[in-house]
Design a protein around this nucleic acid. Sequence first.
DNA 1: ATGTCAATATTGACAGTGTCAAGTTTGCGG
DNA 2: CCGCAAACTTGACACTGTCAATATTGACAT
Lengths: 198, 198
Amino acid sequence: MSQTPPKPHHHGDLRAALIRAGIDILQTDGFHGLSLRKCAARAGVSHAAPAHHFDGLAGLKGAIAHHGLTLFREAMVAASKDETDDLARLKGICRGYLNFVAARPALFRLMFGFESHEIEKAAREIDDAVAYDVLRAACAPFVRKDLPAPILEAQVWSLIHGYATLYLTGNFLRDVHALPEQEAFDQVMAALDRMVSL
Amino acid sequence: MSQTPPKPHHHGDLRAALIRAGIDILQTDGFHGLSLRKCAARAGVSHAAPAHHFDGLAGLKGAIAHHGLTLFREAMVAASKDETDDLARLKGICRGYLNFVAARPALFRLMFGFESHEIEKAAREIDDAVAYDVLRAACAPFVRKDLPAPILEAQVWSLIHGYATLYLTGNFLRDVHALPEQEAFDQVMAALDRMVSL
DNA sequence: ATGTCAATATTGACAGTGTCAAGTTTGCGG
DNA sequence: CCGCAAACTTGACACTGTCAATATTGACAT
């Protein structure tokens, strides 16, 4: 895509404005509300203008996801940075994960929903690392010879990702979601105690 | 919706035909390929005919998800029924879960993607139980006083659901997915050993 | 058999959507 | 000042879901 717009001509910086518009629309109108034409309208340009900055809708979604990943990382960092204990820190990461899901459901859906398959794949692999590193660091203290880092990370990531998505969609887990939110989270995340114990 | 179509007039049983068409289209053209008009065309009726059997697209998706849930259940039962050991049986359920995801990705996405939010909600809560009961039964042997059934179920469901969706979308977990599929599955599901152990 | 009537399906229209092919404006570099 | 390319607009196309109006069908009562 056009990663170097050196000097904006008409708008100012349309590319950034469209991404901002997209994130706003996701928050306001939900995932369905996002469309190229609405982003264009909100940015005050014509309906086909975005085509010059993104490779169609998939390209715009890719750019939004790219930006969203830094917000995602920030949420996890913020929720874990005050923890000193290794386990509490890991749970803080998960707490941040869930906070992000609750705060920006549509953006999360764009980033991690099945749609991510159709998103511009190029930069994705690099971007993912931005968020994944946070988890990796939090998992590091628990790595053992019989529990390699990639496996542990996959286990933890699967657990929190699964819980977050089931939480978001309301599928299954009704008994648990009937509990107060924090208690439900704590009880499910208690699985980490065992997964990580000697 | 029309839950009692006592005597078909024109088509034969258009409702069932549309659901079948929908599942076929999901398998052939992927999630995006599904549309009311295409289902109608494949069933040999006009584009607006489905409206008389389903409450719009959400209604059709709901009906497809309803049917898909029984296939989903069958996949889990089939993969676990020959196991006698309790833990192996639980892992068989998870194996069946992943098998289903691999075999019918678009249908799975319709059922458990974020789209399920917009799906006809009415029957969903009852339907869910159809599949959830399989998991519940497999979890039952491991329930203890300090590990109530709903919590354990939520932990197991979150783990396999998270792994399956990350597997499907290709987000994160690259190191693990570089492994042979069965080995990756086994290693991640080893977390169950610990979660369930005394 | 005949007429009634509701369920079933068709047709045509409408507002959206993404995307493409042209044209138009803008402003920088020679 | 002029060219020229980047940025943007305009108009069209095919496709989508949805609705209102119409036509058809088949069962049931008389």
